[in-house]
Design a protein around this nucleic acid. Structure first.
Lengths: 118, 118
DNA sequence: GCGATATTTAACCAATCGGTTAATTAACGA
DNA sequence: TCGTTAATTAACCGATTGGTTAAATATCGC
């Protein structure tokens, strides 16, 4: 997978890991505290945290036998920035009706093979 | 994986698929056109597209033997909205120095076990 | 109907994923 | 030093992933 953005999105592609991030947005928490809300075992949580750490979304400190975890937002910001150019499309109603209208008014369309989308 | 958000992030966790989306942001394209820039085989592209379709990020039309693909932004928007609450943290320099300052001024800290983060 | 073009499906493979249980490491506190 | 608590590591399992080659499907143009 290698690249940071892929690692970030991959880390986000799991509801448990997203929940952990949501929890950390409210402040630091130890591994045990993070694990509490879930049904899965501690080793499983430990590995989810390792994935989040690997993606640079979380950092771990140490305090006696505890490992307080903290949200690291930089990589989230990078993911957010990757999304930014697509925001332009969020409200583009580029759909059936509009496309059809366009193809009816324009005679020889610049169309990618005369689309009949849907 | 089941939930839409996980499917979306998972689909985005691959550079080939992100490149496909970037290409589609410039307009519709057939499977062959989308495959052209890549070294991998057509079946591989076909499956990447199926992942993107499955995540609702791309829709396919049909026109003779071509399958013109189009970007569908709704799910991207949902992912973007998931990120929104975290934007608050993007510039929070919540780091060593600031945390340490805080723990020095506050006597009995509300600290999660007296963090020594890093 | 036939050959060419566009795309998908099938079968396979090695690697990774998300979970488990059991064992290990590390630091506390008495 | 011993028992307890916090967390990680190891070994294993079944499912999924991302790629391949080869075969199948669909539609065109003649």
């Amino acid at each position: 997978m290698v690249d940071a953005l892929s690692a970030t999105f991959s880390a986000l592609a799991d509801p448990t890991r997203r929940a952990i991030l949501a929890r950390l947005a409210e402040g630091e928490a130890t591994v045990g505290e993070l694990a509490a809300p879930f049904d899965i075992t501690l080793p499983a949580i430990s590995r989810h945290l390792k994935v989040l750490e690997g993606a640079g979304l979380v950092s771990k400190g140490r305090s006696a036998q505890w490992r307080p975890c903290r949200l690291e937002a930089a990589r989230l910001k990078a993911a957010d920035e990757w999304m930014a150019p697509y925001r332009e499309f969020f409200d583009t109603r580029f759909d059936r009706l509009e496309a059809q209208l366009e193809s009816m008014t324009t005679k020889t369309t610049t169309d990618t093979k005369g689309t009949t989308h849907d």
